[in-house]
Design a protein around this nucleic acid. Structure first.
Length: 486
RNA sequence: GGUCUCUUAGUAUAACGGUUAGUACAACGGGUUUUCAUCCCGUCAACGCGGGUUCGACUCCCGCAGAGAUCACCA
Protein backbone atom coordinates (compact mmCIF):
# COMPACT_ATOMS: atom_id res chain seq x y z
CA UNK A 1 0.00 0.00 0.00
CA UNK A 2 1.26 3.45 -0.87
CA UNK A 3 1.22 5.44 2.32
CA UNK A 4 -0.11 8.95 2.02
CA UNK A 5 0.61 10.70 5.25
CA UNK A 6 1.32 14.09 6.71
CA UNK A 7 3.12 16.08 9.31
CA UNK A 8 0.69 18.60 10.73
CA UNK A 9 2.32 20.89 13.28
CA UNK A 10 0.83 23.99 14.86
CA UNK A 11 2.93 27.06 14.29
CA UNK A 12 3.40 27.73 17.98
CA UNK A 13 7.18 27.64 18.07
CA UNK A 14 10.18 25.62 17.04
CA UNK A 15 10.37 21.89 16.51
CA UNK A 16 12.38 20.12 19.16
CA UNK A 17 13.78 16.67 19.69
CA UNK A 18 10.60 15.57 21.42
CA UNK A 19 8.18 16.28 18.64
CA UNK A 20 10.11 15.78 15.43
CA UNK A 21 9.66 12.02 15.38
CA UNK A 22 6.06 12.50 14.32
CA UNK A 23 7.58 13.92 11.13
CA UNK A 24 10.36 11.36 10.72
CA UNK A 25 8.37 8.14 10.97
CA UNK A 26 5.58 9.22 8.60
CA UNK A 27 8.22 10.46 6.18
CA UNK A 28 10.01 7.11 6.21
CA UNK A 29 6.76 5.21 5.76
CA UNK A 30 5.75 7.39 2.83
CA UNK A 31 9.10 7.10 1.07
CA UNK A 32 9.32 3.39 1.63
CA UNK A 33 6.02 2.75 -0.11
CA UNK A 34 6.43 5.36 -2.81
CA UNK A 35 3.56 7.32 -1.30
CA UNK A 36 3.31 10.95 -0.30
CA UNK A 37 4.46 13.09 2.60
CA UNK A 38 2.32 16.17 3.09
CA UNK A 39 3.03 19.20 5.26
CA UNK A 40 -0.06 20.87 6.67
CA UNK A 41 0.00 23.83 9.02
CA UNK A 42 -2.64 23.61 11.74
CA UNK A 43 -2.94 27.25 12.67
CA UNK A 44 -6.46 27.29 14.06
CA UNK A 45 -5.44 28.42 17.51
CA UNK A 46 -5.13 32.14 17.11
CA UNK A 47 -4.01 32.67 20.68
CA UNK A 48 -0.98 30.43 20.47
CA UNK A 49 0.06 31.42 16.96
CA UNK A 50 3.70 32.50 16.74
CA UNK A 51 4.74 34.53 13.70
CA UNK A 52 7.66 32.95 11.91
CA UNK A 53 7.04 29.51 13.37
CA UNK A 54 6.00 28.07 10.02
CA UNK A 55 9.32 29.11 8.51
CA UNK A 56 11.13 27.59 11.48
CA UNK A 57 9.29 24.33 10.98
CA UNK A 58 10.04 24.20 7.26
CA UNK A 59 13.65 25.07 7.93
CA UNK A 60 13.94 22.14 10.32
CA UNK A 61 12.35 19.66 7.91
CA UNK A 62 14.59 20.80 5.08
CA UNK A 63 17.69 20.53 7.20
CA UNK A 64 16.84 16.97 8.20
CA UNK A 65 16.15 16.12 4.59
CA UNK A 66 12.44 15.49 5.09
CA UNK A 67 11.16 17.10 1.92
CA UNK A 68 7.40 17.28 1.52
CA UNK A 69 5.45 16.48 -1.63
CA UNK A 70 2.55 18.78 -0.89
CA UNK A 71 2.28 21.74 1.40
CA UNK A 72 3.38 25.31 1.80
CA UNK A 73 5.67 26.57 -0.96
CA UNK A 74 5.28 23.47 -3.10
CA UNK A 75 1.48 23.54 -3.31
CA UNK A 76 -0.55 20.51 -4.34
CA UNK A 77 -3.98 19.31 -5.44
CA UNK A 78 -5.57 19.80 -2.02
CA UNK A 79 -4.28 23.36 -1.49
CA UNK A 80 -4.34 25.46 0.57
CA UNK A 81 -2.32 23.75 3.30
CA UNK A 82 -2.92 26.30 6.05
CA UNK A 83 -6.06 25.48 8.00
CA UNK A 84 -7.09 29.08 8.52
CA UNK A 85 -7.35 29.34 4.75
CA UNK A 86 -9.67 26.35 4.69
CA UNK A 87 -12.15 27.80 7.17
CA UNK A 88 -15.16 27.56 4.83
CA UNK A 89 -14.54 23.91 4.08
CA UNK A 90 -14.86 22.92 7.74
CA UNK A 91 -17.98 24.99 8.16
CA UNK A 92 -19.59 23.29 5.16
CA UNK A 93 -18.77 19.88 6.55
CA UNK A 94 -20.13 20.79 9.96
CA UNK A 95 -23.34 22.08 8.42
CA UNK A 96 -23.66 18.82 6.55
CA UNK A 97 -23.63 17.03 9.90
CA UNK A 98 -26.21 19.43 11.32
CA UNK A 99 -28.47 18.75 8.35
CA UNK A 100 -28.22 15.03 9.06
CA UNK A 101 -28.93 15.53 12.75
CA UNK A 102 -25.38 14.49 13.71
CA UNK A 103 -24.31 17.85 15.06
CA UNK A 104 -25.91 20.88 16.58
CA UNK A 105 -25.34 24.55 17.11
CA UNK A 106 -24.89 25.32 20.76
CA UNK A 107 -24.39 28.70 22.34
CA UNK A 108 -24.51 27.61 25.95
CA UNK A 109 -22.46 30.18 27.84
CA UNK A 110 -19.16 29.01 29.26
CA UNK A 111 -20.30 29.83 32.79
CA UNK A 112 -23.13 27.35 32.41
CA UNK A 113 -20.77 24.70 31.10
CA UNK A 114 -18.49 25.33 34.03
CA UNK A 115 -21.44 24.90 36.36
CA UNK A 116 -22.26 21.51 34.78
CA UNK A 117 -18.71 20.44 35.34
CA UNK A 118 -18.74 21.47 38.98
CA UNK A 119 -22.08 19.84 39.61
CA UNK A 120 -20.85 16.57 38.13
CA UNK A 121 -17.68 16.73 40.17
CA UNK A 122 -19.75 17.32 43.32
CA UNK A 123 -22.01 14.40 42.44
CA UNK A 124 -18.93 12.29 41.69
CA UNK A 125 -20.09 11.39 38.23
CA UNK A 126 -17.85 11.77 35.19
CA UNK A 127 -18.43 15.02 33.37
CA UNK A 128 -19.80 14.45 29.89
CA UNK A 129 -21.33 17.30 27.98
CA UNK A 130 -23.77 15.01 26.22
CA UNK A 131 -25.52 14.50 29.56
CA UNK A 132 -26.34 18.21 29.46
CA UNK A 133 -27.18 18.39 25.80
CA UNK A 134 -29.87 21.11 25.25
CA UNK A 135 -33.31 19.81 24.31
CA UNK A 136 -34.09 22.51 21.83
CA UNK A 137 -31.94 22.90 18.79
CA UNK A 138 -31.07 26.30 17.49
CA UNK A 139 -30.37 27.42 13.98
CA UNK A 140 -26.66 28.00 13.54
CA UNK A 141 -25.48 31.53 13.07
CA UNK A 142 -22.07 33.09 13.10
CA UNK A 143 -20.49 33.20 16.56
CA UNK A 144 -22.11 29.95 17.65
CA UNK A 145 -20.05 26.86 18.34
CA UNK A 146 -21.06 23.60 16.70
CA UNK A 147 -20.94 20.37 18.64
CA UNK A 148 -20.92 16.81 17.46
CA UNK A 149 -23.97 14.83 18.54
CA UNK A 150 -22.14 11.78 19.77
CA UNK A 151 -23.35 8.26 19.36
CA UNK A 152 -21.61 6.55 22.24
CA UNK A 153 -21.05 2.84 21.91
CA UNK A 154 -18.22 0.34 22.36
CA UNK A 155 -15.52 0.86 19.77
CA UNK A 156 -12.53 -1.19 18.75
CA UNK A 157 -9.68 -0.33 16.49
CA UNK A 158 -6.15 -1.27 15.67
CA UNK A 159 -3.22 0.95 16.41
CA UNK A 160 -0.09 0.11 14.41
CA UNK A 161 2.10 0.66 17.44
CA UNK A 162 -0.13 -0.06 20.43
CA UNK A 163 -2.00 -3.01 18.97
CA UNK A 164 -5.69 -3.77 19.33
CA UNK A 165 -7.58 -1.15 21.27
CA UNK A 166 -11.03 -0.80 22.67
CA UNK A 167 -13.01 1.90 24.41
CA UNK A 168 -16.44 2.21 25.96
CA UNK A 169 -19.08 4.91 25.63
CA UNK A 170 -17.79 6.72 28.70
CA UNK A 171 -15.03 8.40 26.72
CA UNK A 172 -17.19 9.58 23.86
CA UNK A 173 -18.74 12.98 24.07
CA UNK A 174 -20.22 15.89 22.17
CA UNK A 175 -16.94 17.46 21.16
CA UNK A 176 -16.73 20.94 19.71
CA UNK A 177 -16.31 20.94 15.95
CA UNK A 178 -16.45 24.64 15.22
CA UNK A 179 -15.40 27.19 17.79
CA UNK A 180 -17.06 30.48 18.55
CA UNK A 181 -14.50 32.20 16.33
CA UNK A 182 -15.68 30.15 13.38
CA UNK A 183 -12.47 28.13 13.17
CA UNK A 184 -12.51 24.37 13.62
CA UNK A 185 -10.96 22.48 16.50
CA UNK A 186 -8.08 20.11 15.80
CA UNK A 187 -10.41 17.21 16.55
CA UNK A 188 -12.61 18.14 13.63
CA UNK A 189 -10.27 19.82 11.16
CA UNK A 190 -7.78 16.99 10.90
CA UNK A 191 -10.53 14.50 10.05
CA UNK A 192 -11.78 16.65 7.20
CA UNK A 193 -8.33 17.52 5.91
CA UNK A 194 -6.95 14.02 6.06
CA UNK A 195 -9.90 12.83 4.04
CA UNK A 196 -9.67 15.59 1.43
CA UNK A 197 -5.93 15.16 1.13
CA UNK A 198 -6.13 11.42 0.63
CA UNK A 199 -4.26 10.66 3.84
CA UNK A 200 -4.36 6.98 4.73
CA UNK A 201 -1.99 6.97 7.69
CA UNK A 202 -2.06 9.24 10.71
CA UNK A 203 0.89 9.28 13.08
CA UNK A 204 0.88 11.41 16.22
CA UNK A 205 1.85 11.34 19.87
CA UNK A 206 0.21 8.88 22.28
CA UNK A 207 -1.62 11.74 23.93
CA UNK A 208 -4.16 11.44 21.13
CA UNK A 209 -4.85 7.81 21.90
CA UNK A 210 -7.61 8.60 24.33
CA UNK A 211 -9.30 10.89 21.83
CA UNK A 212 -9.37 8.25 19.15
CA UNK A 213 -12.88 6.93 19.98
CA UNK A 214 -14.25 10.38 19.25
CA UNK A 215 -12.41 10.41 15.93
CA UNK A 216 -13.82 7.01 15.07
CA UNK A 217 -17.29 8.39 15.71
CA UNK A 218 -16.60 11.22 13.29
CA UNK A 219 -15.29 8.90 10.57
CA UNK A 220 -18.44 6.90 11.02
CA UNK A 221 -20.69 9.96 10.90
CA UNK A 222 -19.14 11.00 7.60
CA UNK A 223 -19.07 7.48 6.29
CA UNK A 224 -15.39 7.63 5.47
CA UNK A 225 -12.74 4.95 5.97
CA UNK A 226 -10.49 5.43 8.91
CA UNK A 227 -6.80 5.75 8.11
CA UNK A 228 -4.05 3.62 9.60
CA UNK A 229 -3.62 4.90 13.13
CA UNK A 230 -0.15 5.20 14.60
CA UNK A 231 0.49 6.37 18.17
CA UNK A 232 4.03 7.44 18.89
CA UNK A 233 5.29 7.18 22.47
CA UNK A 234 6.95 10.22 23.92
CA UNK A 235 10.60 11.03 24.09
CA UNK A 236 11.41 11.42 27.77
CA UNK A 237 13.53 14.14 29.30
CA UNK A 238 17.02 13.11 30.49
CA UNK A 239 15.82 13.45 34.08
CA UNK A 240 12.55 12.38 35.57
CA UNK A 241 9.74 10.59 33.79
CA UNK A 242 8.31 13.50 31.95
CA UNK A 243 8.01 13.80 28.26
CA UNK A 244 10.71 15.99 26.79
CA UNK A 245 9.40 19.47 26.23
CA UNK A 246 10.52 23.02 25.96
CA UNK A 247 10.25 23.40 29.70
CA UNK A 248 12.90 20.74 30.19
CA UNK A 249 15.17 22.79 28.01
CA UNK A 250 14.49 20.77 24.88
CA UNK A 251 16.51 22.57 22.28
CA UNK A 252 15.16 23.21 18.84
CA UNK A 253 16.38 20.78 16.25
CA UNK A 254 18.06 23.56 14.32
CA UNK A 255 19.99 24.62 17.40
CA UNK A 256 21.91 21.39 17.03
CA UNK A 257 22.72 22.37 13.47
CA UNK A 258 24.23 25.58 14.82
CA UNK A 259 26.18 23.56 17.36
CA UNK A 260 27.79 21.50 14.63
CA UNK A 261 25.64 18.39 14.60
CA UNK A 262 25.20 16.83 11.16
CA UNK A 263 21.66 16.27 9.89
CA UNK A 264 22.60 12.70 9.00
CA UNK A 265 23.51 12.02 12.62
CA UNK A 266 20.42 13.74 13.98
CA UNK A 267 18.08 11.80 11.71
CA UNK A 268 19.91 8.57 12.47
CA UNK A 269 19.75 9.15 16.22
CA UNK A 270 16.11 10.18 16.35
CA UNK A 271 14.93 7.42 14.05
CA UNK A 272 16.66 4.83 16.21
CA UNK A 273 15.38 6.26 19.48
CA UNK A 274 12.40 4.04 19.99
CA UNK A 275 12.70 2.05 16.83
CA UNK A 276 15.05 -0.63 15.53
CA UNK A 277 14.98 -3.11 12.71
CA UNK A 278 15.98 -6.07 14.85
CA UNK A 279 19.56 -6.12 13.57
CA UNK A 280 22.57 -4.73 15.39
CA UNK A 281 23.19 -1.94 12.93
CA UNK A 282 23.78 1.46 14.56
CA UNK A 283 24.63 3.74 11.67
CA UNK A 284 21.90 4.29 9.11
CA UNK A 285 21.81 6.60 6.12
CA UNK A 286 18.47 8.10 5.22
CA UNK A 287 18.11 5.60 2.38
CA UNK A 288 18.88 2.72 4.71
CA UNK A 289 16.26 3.98 7.15
CA UNK A 290 13.70 4.19 4.38
CA UNK A 291 14.43 0.59 3.46
CA UNK A 292 14.56 -0.83 6.96
CA UNK A 293 11.69 1.09 8.56
CA UNK A 294 8.56 -0.63 9.74
CA UNK A 295 5.72 0.70 11.86
CA UNK A 296 5.31 -2.45 13.91
CA UNK A 297 8.84 -2.22 15.25
CA UNK A 298 8.29 1.16 16.81
CA UNK A 299 8.73 0.79 20.55
CA UNK A 300 5.52 1.17 22.52
CA UNK A 301 6.99 2.79 25.59
CA UNK A 302 8.73 6.13 25.92
CA UNK A 303 12.43 6.47 25.21
CA UNK A 304 14.75 8.73 27.10
CA UNK A 305 16.70 11.32 25.18
CA UNK A 306 20.45 10.80 25.54
CA UNK A 307 22.60 13.59 24.18
CA UNK A 308 25.83 11.71 24.85
CA UNK A 309 24.81 9.04 22.39
CA UNK A 310 23.77 11.65 19.85
CA UNK A 311 27.23 13.19 20.07
CA UNK A 312 28.88 9.80 19.73
CA UNK A 313 26.82 9.15 16.63
CA UNK A 314 27.74 12.57 15.28
CA UNK A 315 31.43 11.74 15.66
CA UNK A 316 30.83 8.50 13.81
CA UNK A 317 29.12 10.39 11.02
CA UNK A 318 31.90 12.95 10.70
CA UNK A 319 34.43 10.15 10.27
CA UNK A 320 32.17 8.21 7.94
CA UNK A 321 31.62 11.16 5.64
CA UNK A 322 35.26 12.19 5.57
CA UNK A 323 36.33 8.63 4.88
CA UNK A 324 33.77 8.09 2.16
CA UNK A 325 33.79 11.47 0.47
CA UNK A 326 37.19 12.90 1.30
CA UNK A 327 38.20 16.15 2.93
CA UNK A 328 37.40 18.31 -0.09
CA UNK A 329 33.78 17.21 -0.19
CA UNK A 330 33.33 17.48 3.56
CA UNK A 331 35.09 20.80 3.99
CA UNK A 332 32.17 23.06 2.95
CA UNK A 333 30.16 21.79 5.91
CA UNK A 334 32.70 23.27 8.30
CA UNK A 335 32.42 26.82 6.96
CA UNK A 336 30.76 28.40 9.99
CA UNK A 337 32.72 26.56 12.63
CA UNK A 338 36.29 27.84 12.44
CA UNK A 339 37.79 30.22 14.99
CA UNK A 340 37.62 33.95 14.18
CA UNK A 341 41.35 33.99 13.55
CA UNK A 342 41.01 31.49 10.71
CA UNK A 343 39.19 34.02 8.57
CA UNK A 344 42.24 35.24 6.68
CA UNK A 345 43.58 31.78 5.93
CA UNK A 346 43.21 29.99 2.62
CA UNK A 347 40.79 27.11 2.21
CA UNK A 348 43.67 24.84 1.30
CA UNK A 349 45.33 25.46 4.65
CA UNK A 350 42.11 24.91 6.58
CA UNK A 351 41.58 21.69 4.69
CA UNK A 352 45.00 20.52 5.85
CA UNK A 353 44.07 21.32 9.43
CA UNK A 354 40.74 19.55 9.03
CA UNK A 355 42.52 16.55 7.57
CA UNK A 356 44.58 15.97 10.70
CA UNK A 357 41.97 16.91 13.31
CA UNK A 358 38.67 15.56 12.01
CA UNK A 359 38.85 12.23 13.80
CA UNK A 360 38.85 14.05 17.12
CA UNK A 361 35.64 15.99 16.49
CA UNK A 362 32.40 15.18 18.20
CA UNK A 363 30.72 18.22 16.71
CA UNK A 364 31.88 20.62 14.03
CA UNK A 365 31.97 23.42 16.57
CA UNK A 366 34.80 21.58 18.33
CA UNK A 367 36.93 23.09 15.56
CA UNK A 368 36.66 26.43 17.31
CA UNK A 369 38.19 25.10 20.51
CA UNK A 370 40.65 22.70 18.98
CA UNK A 371 42.37 24.54 16.13
CA UNK A 372 43.21 27.99 17.50
CA UNK A 373 46.98 27.50 17.44
CA UNK A 374 46.94 26.77 13.72
CA UNK A 375 45.78 30.31 13.01
CA UNK A 376 47.37 32.48 15.69
CA UNK A 377 50.26 32.20 18.10
CA UNK A 378 48.86 30.56 21.22
CA UNK A 379 48.74 32.42 24.51
CA UNK A 380 52.08 31.93 26.17
CA UNK A 381 51.78 29.88 29.33
CA UNK A 382 55.09 28.64 30.68
CA UNK A 383 53.32 27.00 33.62
CA UNK A 384 51.36 24.72 31.37
CA UNK A 385 54.66 23.48 30.07
CA UNK A 386 56.36 23.11 33.44
CA UNK A 387 53.41 21.41 35.11
CA UNK A 388 52.78 18.91 32.32
CA UNK A 389 53.07 15.48 33.89
CA UNK A 390 55.35 14.09 31.19
CA UNK A 391 57.69 17.04 31.26
CA UNK A 392 57.80 16.96 35.03
CA UNK A 393 58.80 13.33 34.78
CA UNK A 394 62.01 14.28 32.99
CA UNK A 395 63.20 16.03 36.14
CA UNK A 396 64.98 18.56 33.95
CA UNK A 397 65.52 22.13 35.05
CA UNK A 398 64.33 25.04 32.95
CA UNK A 399 67.74 25.62 31.46
CA UNK A 400 68.09 21.94 30.66
CA UNK A 401 64.72 22.04 28.94
CA UNK A 402 65.87 25.07 27.00
CA UNK A 403 68.98 23.19 25.95
CA UNK A 404 66.88 20.26 24.84
CA UNK A 405 64.66 22.53 22.80
CA UNK A 406 67.76 24.06 21.28
CA UNK A 407 68.96 20.65 20.15
CA UNK A 408 65.57 19.95 18.60
CA UNK A 409 65.32 23.30 16.90
CA UNK A 410 68.84 23.18 15.50
CA UNK A 411 68.22 19.74 14.07
CA UNK A 412 64.88 20.74 12.54
CA UNK A 413 66.43 23.84 10.98
CA UNK A 414 68.74 21.61 8.97
CA UNK A 415 65.83 19.76 7.37
CA UNK A 416 66.20 19.96 3.60
CA UNK A 417 62.43 19.87 3.08
CA UNK A 418 59.69 20.45 5.68
CA UNK A 419 57.63 17.37 4.91
CA UNK A 420 55.66 14.95 7.01
CA UNK A 421 57.98 12.09 6.15
CA UNK A 422 61.15 14.02 6.94
CA UNK A 423 59.71 15.31 10.19
CA UNK A 424 58.79 11.85 11.25
CA UNK A 425 62.29 10.57 10.55
CA UNK A 426 63.98 13.40 12.39
CA UNK A 427 61.70 13.21 15.39
CA UNK A 428 62.44 9.54 15.78
CA UNK A 429 66.13 10.22 15.36
CA UNK A 430 65.95 12.88 18.08
CA UNK A 431 64.49 10.33 20.47
CA UNK A 432 67.66 8.32 20.11
CA UNK A 433 70.17 11.16 20.21
CA UNK A 434 68.58 12.79 23.24
CA UNK A 435 67.79 9.53 24.99
CA UNK A 436 64.39 10.89 26.10
CA UNK A 437 61.17 8.94 26.14
CA UNK A 438 58.65 9.80 23.41
CA UNK A 439 56.10 11.10 25.89
CA UNK A 440 58.67 13.45 27.38
CA UNK A 441 60.35 14.85 24.31
CA UNK A 442 57.23 15.05 22.19
CA UNK A 443 55.15 16.67 24.92
CA UNK A 444 57.78 19.36 25.25
CA UNK A 445 57.73 20.11 21.53
CA UNK A 446 54.00 19.73 21.25
CA UNK A 447 53.22 22.18 24.03
CA UNK A 448 55.89 24.61 22.88
CA UNK A 449 54.23 24.96 19.47
CA UNK A 450 50.57 24.67 20.52
CA UNK A 451 50.04 25.31 24.22
CA UNK A 452 46.99 23.14 23.75
CA UNK A 453 45.87 20.33 26.03
CA UNK A 454 46.11 17.97 23.07
CA UNK A 455 46.82 18.06 19.37
CA UNK A 456 47.15 15.72 16.41
CA UNK A 457 50.26 13.60 15.94
CA UNK A 458 53.34 15.78 16.31
CA UNK A 459 54.82 15.21 12.85
CA UNK A 460 51.49 16.10 11.25
CA UNK A 461 51.01 19.15 13.43
CA UNK A 462 54.46 20.49 12.62
CA UNK A 463 54.01 19.75 8.93
CA UNK A 464 50.80 21.74 8.76
CA UNK A 465 52.09 24.61 10.90
CA UNK A 466 55.01 24.97 8.54
CA UNK A 467 58.70 25.59 9.03
CA UNK A 468 58.70 29.26 9.95
CA UNK A 469 55.90 29.13 12.48
CA UNK A 470 57.17 25.95 14.10
CA UNK A 471 60.73 27.17 14.47
CA UNK A 472 59.82 30.61 15.75
CA UNK A 473 57.49 29.16 18.36
CA UNK A 474 60.23 26.81 19.52
CA UNK A 475 62.69 29.71 19.69
CA UNK A 476 60.21 31.79 21.68
CA UNK A 477 59.75 29.12 24.31
CA UNK A 478 63.43 28.40 24.47
CA UNK A 479 64.35 31.98 25.22
CA UNK A 480 61.52 32.32 27.73
CA UNK A 481 62.87 29.32 29.61
CA UNK A 482 66.31 30.85 29.67
CA UNK A 483 65.20 34.27 30.89
CA UNK A 484 62.86 32.72 33.41
CA UNK A 485 65.88 31.01 34.89
CA UNK A 486 67.83 34.22 35.44
C1' G B 1 -11.11 9.96 40.76
C1' G B 2 -12.89 7.54 35.73
C1' U B 3 -10.76 5.54 31.23
C1' C B 4 -6.50 3.91 28.54
C1' U B 5 -1.27 2.63 27.93
C1' C B 6 3.53 1.07 29.40
C1' U B 7 7.55 -1.87 32.54
C1' U B 8 14.96 -6.16 30.08
C1' A B 9 21.74 -3.22 32.97
C1' G B 10 22.59 4.12 34.32
C1' U B 11 20.59 4.90 28.92
C1' A B 12 18.73 2.93 24.01
C1' U B 13 17.47 -1.89 22.79
C1' A B 14 17.65 -7.73 20.97
C1' A B 15 15.89 -12.49 22.11
C1' C B 16 9.63 -18.94 17.21
C1' G B 17 8.10 -20.96 25.34
C1' G B 18 14.18 -24.09 25.70
C1' U B 19 20.48 -18.86 24.79
C1' U B 20 26.12 -18.85 29.66
C1' A B 21 19.70 -13.19 28.37
C1' G B 22 22.90 -10.59 22.73
C1' U B 23 24.32 -5.44 20.95
C1' A B 24 25.41 -0.12 21.34
C1' C B 25 26.27 4.44 24.40
C1' A B 26 28.16 5.58 29.27
C1' A B 27 31.64 3.90 33.26
C1' C B 28 36.18 1.23 34.35
C1' G B 29 40.87 -1.31 32.65
C1' G B 30 44.35 -2.53 28.70
C1' G B 31 46.63 -2.21 23.62
C1' U B 32 47.75 0.73 19.07
C1' U B 33 56.23 2.41 21.10
C1' U B 34 53.86 11.52 22.35
C1' U B 35 49.21 13.98 24.43
C1' C B 36 43.58 14.14 23.59
C1' A B 37 40.72 11.43 20.41
C1' U B 38 39.96 7.55 16.70
C1' C B 39 40.55 2.28 16.24
C1' C B 40 41.04 -2.62 18.73
C1' C B 41 40.55 -5.89 23.18
C1' G B 42 38.49 -6.71 27.94
C1' U B 43 35.53 -5.76 32.76
C1' C B 44 31.14 -4.11 35.41
C1' A B 45 25.91 -4.11 34.80
C1' A B 46 19.23 -6.03 33.44
C1' C B 47 14.22 -9.57 32.72
C1' G B 48 9.43 -4.39 38.58
C1' C B 49 6.82 -7.81 42.41
C1' G B 50 3.46 -12.10 43.43
C1' G B 51 0.66 -16.02 41.72
C1' G B 52 -0.85 -19.38 37.75
C1' U B 53 -0.48 -22.37 32.85
C1' U B 54 3.71 -25.60 31.18
C1' C B 55 8.47 -30.86 31.37
C1' G B 56 10.30 -25.77 30.81
C1' A B 57 8.22 -18.57 31.20
C1' C B 58 11.78 -12.36 29.85
C1' U B 59 8.20 -14.50 26.48
C1' C B 60 1.26 -16.79 27.69
C1' C B 61 -2.78 -15.68 31.70
C1' C B 62 -4.36 -13.20 36.40
C1' G B 63 -3.36 -9.94 40.36
C1' C B 64 -0.21 -6.03 42.61
C1' A B 65 3.15 -2.07 42.43
C1' G B 66 5.39 1.82 39.80
C1' A B 67 5.41 5.15 35.65
C1' G B 68 2.82 7.77 31.79
C1' A B 69 -1.42 9.71 28.90
C1' U B 70 -6.28 11.76 28.83
C1' C B 71 -10.90 13.71 30.78
C1' A B 72 -10.66 22.11 26.87
C1' C B 73 -14.41 26.60 22.29
C1' C B 74 -5.23 23.50 22.85
C1' A B 75 -3.35 20.80 19.47
Amino acid sequence: MKIITRFAPSPTGYIHIGNVRSAIYPYLAARQTGGKFILRIEDTDQARYVPGATELIMDTLRWLGLEWDEGPEVGGPAAPYFQTERKDIYLDWAKKLIAEGKAYADDTPSETIEAYRKADAAAKVPYLYRNHRPDTTKKWQEGMPIRFKSDPKPRTWHDEVMGDMHAGPEVQDDIILIKKDGLPTYNFAHIVDDYLMGVNMVARGVEYLSSTPNYLALYEAFGIDRPLLVSLPHILAPQGNKKLGKRDGAKSVTEYRDDGVLPEAMLNYLACLGWNDGTEQEIYTKDELVKAFSLDRIQNSGARYDEVKLLWLNGQWIRKLVTEQGIDAFYPRTTNFWPETAKSYADSYKKQVLGIIYDRLKTLSDLREMTGYFFADPAFDIDQLLTNKFIKKTGLSESELAALLDTVRTRLEKLPAWTEANLKTILNELLETTGRKPAELFSLIRIAVSFAPFSPALDLTLAVLGRDVSLSRLRRVQSALVSDQQ
